[in-house]
Amino acid sequence: MAQSQLAAERDAAERPPVDRKAVLDRLDRVDDPELDRSIVELEYVDAIEINAGDTSRMDGDGSDAGESNAEGSKVFVRFKLPTAWCSPTFAWMMATGIRDETEELPGVSRATVELIDHMHATEINDGVNAREPFEEAFEDATEGIEETRRSLDRKARLARQYRAVEALLDVGMRPEQIVSLSPADVGLADLLAEGRDVEADIGESSDSDDEAGDRDEAHVTIPVDGGALYVQVPREPIAVYVTKAIDTDLLASPDDVLFATPDGEAISVEDFDLVHHRARAANVNQIGQGGVCASLHEARYGLSVDEPAD
């Protein structure tokens, strides 16, 4: 007893303190699955409360009786969406994402989530906090949440592909060069080693010239024409794409073909334009819908969110 208590205290001492910023940083990993953007950026997070000992805000069913407070903090996160009609499926994904990511933080023992101002707030809050599966919270569900998530992720991948391929076209790469690229060719094989859910924090650190010295972290170098030439391409759009391609199981090995049709097939040179146009439509859809959601969010809560271009 005394020993385990000591161990718990030692663990607690090693843990970084759980504060609002730590939670918010972690929540940055949760995205609006339709817009493929962080819920933090989109200003969906309404409140964060951290109560190491106080369980009054928590679900009072005594389910964690027997757990010691030394186990960690209890965190409460409240969030809201642009409309009360936002798909309950999407809302569920965000609510479970908030719960699970928060609980991944060292020092957090339990997270409770509350969605407000939504048509299905009660079902979602009760279900997510009781850790029920979606199908139990919504009995008339006919399609699993995973399938919906996958189909949204495929869309997100395609939109990201558009931006990545545009970057390659911008530096003068030709379709026949682009369709045969692999993660290894673009110098991003290391992202594969990190596996699914790798954070694309990409881009942000890359502008600063830290200890990397001469190494240009903002760009990747791609060999073309059998290594006779090299081109430099901004790393961010390529890396952002690769993370989603890993998430959607399109990429598993450094030599896989980097880009794909909407159905996940390799792209033939003849189909390059068509596929790129379809990817462009996915990108326009995402950006356009982002504009609709931002307008609604603004009308509802007076919050304005940075949007790409406009």
Binding site: H277, A281, V284, I287, G288, G291, V292, A309, D310
Partner: peptide, 24 residues
């Protein structure tokens, strides 16, 4: 309907949407 009002508040996005529609 619903897309058209974007022409005022988000003209660039509306332009892209109309561009896609005209294209396809």
């Amino acid at each position: 309907a619903v897309v058209a009002p974007l022409a005022l508040s988000r003209p660039r996005k509306f332009g892209e949407i109309i561009g896609e529609l005209l294209f396809w």
